[in-house]
């Protein structure tokens, strides 16, 4: 079936199969490989993207259900001129990126958090990312990065 979905601000017409996941559509057919396929079961959060602004696991969400809606992936965070967002900059600067596999997912969830709360507490940050597994940083650098990004925005 043919659907129209806005991906990173651009309306795309795509043919999707009824059982196809949003992650398969993004990675295999739209060439957006930022969202990662980790567990394929909604447990690890490496595939997190925003659907109408809300973080979801793209690996278990049907592509066909995105018709008429708006999807943002990590590729859509920085504007076309390549300037990183304050949060992306802070991830780089504070060592929150180690192996990098979880990074796109964490960025998406945390961008959603910062869109809701200008200055989340550490507890709020940790609660927001319970569905994003990181095996390198122990989350400390990630929490630091959010604090740094919040400070930079002030």
């Amino acid at each position: 079936m043919e659907i129209e979905v806005t991906v990173n601000g651009v309306v795309r017409g795509v043919e999707v199969r009824p059982h196809e996941t949003l992650l398969a559509l993004l990675r295999d057919r739209l060439g957006l490989r930022g969202a990662k396929n980790g567990c394929s079961e909604g447990e690890c959060g490496a595939c997190t993207v925003l659907l109408d602004g809300a973080p979801i696991d793209a690996c278990i969400y049907p592509a066909a259900a995105c018709a008429g809606r708006s999807v943002t992936t990590v590729e859509g965070l920085a504007p076309p001129d390549g300037e990183l967002t304050a949060l992306q900059r802070a991830f780089v600067d504070s060592g929150a990126v180690q192996c990098g596999f979880c990074t796109p997912g964490l960025l998406m969830t945390l961008h959603a958090l910062l869109a809701e709360r200008a200055a989340p507490s550490e507890a709020e940050v940790r609660r927001a990312i319970v569905g994003n597994i990181c095996r390198c940083t122990g989350y400390a650098h990630v929490v630091d990065a959010v604090a740094q990004a919040v400070g930079a925005r002030r």
């Binding site: 659907l51 809300a54 973080p55 979801i56 696991d57 969400y61 319970v130």
Partner: peptide, 9 residues
Amino acid sequence: VGGWQTQSV
């Protein structure tokens, strides 16, 4: 229930 991603949908 799950994580934020699960709760969103």
